[in-house]
Design a protein around this nucleic acid. Structure first.
Lengths: 357, 357
DNA sequence: TTGAAAGCGCTAACAC
DNA sequence: GTGTTAGCGCTTTCAA
């Protein structure tokens, strides 16, 4: 294929070693020699063989990202923004990003992590959607393999992570609804094996109790994080806890699904019932009724996660081992208006209930 | 790090050569020997060094995907589904996928393709969003480097591609609106340097003309494929071609933006004006007024593109060099009702105009 | 059926 | 300032 060091060396009549040093900017090469070498390299259209360099240096300069998929899609639309974040940061530091798609907890996923932990596939991996007693992390830690997680993974975790503060996020959202006069709020939880699912549920119950509002099991339903799952969970909620005046879902997709169920049941989101989500995916703003939600700076999280991993690989000291980012409330039409001044059904279409963010 | 062939060889008292052959399933190894070797490999937790293997075999078993980004996002949300398609197919055939994010036509993108074409980064690349006289493809062809494009790239193209038939797609959508009674249809075009932009515009004008409807420049506006761009283009259209009763955008994001502009101008999509998009991204179904659009089987396109590329790399004969997939019309509320029976403004909220797909 | 030897292209320790 | 030598871990002739 393309020219190699030997070709250049032959051309200029020097040794391969000198050529290598000249091209890599070592200062023990005569400036004149270097110029000749660089010229020859350009002429021959030289590009270093990455594989050979990797073998020699025992580093791949590649990062692994095992991406959870759900059917033909990403498990969450925000992973695309996350990839942009890690991708750009990786490129900036001259790392390649290897992406491997697997459904969560599958055999394929396990093998992918095993391959990483065994070394020489990539120099480090990024773990997302951390789970309770996460076997992926246990594996990586057992092998002493470099990784950074997006999400925490246990109380006594000492290894590095970047995470958004789900408890704080759900808390501001819940408080927002309570301040609007809601007391009976249904909650659509994420599967409890997912760490963020636990935190979001915790944020909800804590905030309710802080406001003197009891939480019954009937007002909590679990969903699978998809729109369909959210719709189904909302239906169960409506059956077990019909008195609800607001619904909070653990992610935007489920909130959007819940809104559809509510509409079908004759309860208009933003008018008869307040609805909130989490993540602020693009669809939240586009939704039939624009969705109040909690924004995570997901691109930034990706960038930080990646930067941290590269620091670890390079053996650089970390500014912080564990980063917890504060999410931000985004109020849209699905919040509706304060309960006290809520419009009667006759006035539905007119009031400011459907105004945008 | 982990054990290598030499470790196993020492352990069982055989040569590295024999161990290699045993582990790679050559049949010139005594079955008993093979068993011993496999046992030792398991004990030592052996994993082959991919880098060494790659250097020796002069193949990386990696595919490159240079993903166009727009700010902190993918250029199009459907690229996430596309990645899932290529990722799963690649994994199935034991290839790794290297993803590199770059904004279109940037210097970084150029360098990424150059690195690929120079060899030894990956074995082949997938090109998306093909452009008129695409310099990326010219580069790859000049170097004889394996690639498959999602999208065509010129009239006399001989190299492999997978594409959806944009002309047919826009055609069925346009015909759908014409059949509903629309004669004055505005069109929001994609940048004309993008091949699919050209095809979609062509599909529109051809279909109009086939129906005896003239197309003026005033009824076409160009947008940058984002929601904001679509909103701006719709505003221009409204100014230059106010008589329009329907708007077709070259992608869903722009259609959604256009709907917002129309709403602000007091023209309700699905009631006063029909709106159509292209792609069927998730947001199309979630939109304020669910969007009529043309669905592309994007996961399948990703899978096929990837499979084709691997066949080329492996030197296998291709079943087809160029695949053109038929897209499918998805009718939703934004189509509205036939113009003849369209409800008067007073009846807006009642009729079937807002019924779902 | 097994082993010795060569070499993929590069870098780095050590001469000179 | 430049060259010699060695070797990263693997596969593949070729010979025994």
């Amino acid at each position: 294929m393309s020219a190699n060091l030997r070709d250049i060396a032959d051309r200029v009549g020097l040794s391969v070693t000198t050529v290598s040093r000249a091209l890599n900017g070592y200062d023990d090469v005569a400036e004149k020699t270097r110029q000749r070498i660089i010229a020859a390299a350009k002429e021959l259209d030289y590009a270093p063989n990455l594989t050979a360099r990797r073998l020699r240096k025992q580093r791949t300069d590649m990062l692994g990202f095992i991406l959870p998929t759900f059917g033909p899609r990403f498990s969450d639309p925000f992973f695309s923004e996350f990839i942009a974040g890690i991708g750009n940061e990786a490129a900036r530091q001259e790392f390649d990003l290897v992406v491997s798609t697997h459904s969560p907890e599958s055999e394929g996923e396990r093998r992918a992590y095993l391959r990483a932990a065994n070394g020489n596939w990539v120099d480090g991996v990024i773990v997302v959607r951390t789970r309770w007693k996460d076997s992926r992390i246990a594996l990586l830690e057992a092998h002493g393999f470099p990784f950074v997680a997006f999400g925490r993974y246990g109380v006594d975790a000492t290894a590095p992570y970047v995470d958004e503060d789900s408890i704080a996020g759900i808390s501001i959202l819940t408080q927002h609804f309570i301040d609007l006069g809601h007391q009976t709020i249904g909650f659509i939880a994420a599967p409890s094996n997912l760490m963020f699912g636990r935190y979001r549920l915790q944020g909800f119950t804590e905030t309710m109790e802080r406001n003197g509002l009891a939480v019954e099991t009937a007002q909590i339903a679990e969903g699978d994080l998809t729109e369909t799952g959210g719709a189904a969970a909302a239906a169960r909620l409506l059956a077990s806890f019909p008195q609800l005046t607001a619904v909070i879902a653990s992610n935007d997709l489920m909130a959007i699904g819940a809104m559809k169920t509510l509409q079908k049941a004759g309860r208009e989101p933003g008018v008869d019932v307040a609805v909130g989500g989490f993540d602020d995916v693009p669809a939240a703003a586009y939704a039939n009724v624009p969705l109040t939600t909690v924004r995570q700076p997901i691109y930034e999280i990706g960038r930080k996660t990646c930067a941290m991993l590269i620091d670890i690989i390079a053996g650089r000291p970390l500014a912080a081992h564990q980063i917890l980012l504060k999410p931000e409330l985004v109020v849209r039409a699905s919040s509706g208006v304060p309960l006290a001044t809520s419009p009667s059904p006759d006035e539905r279409r007119s009031s400011g209930a459907l105004q945008s963010e």
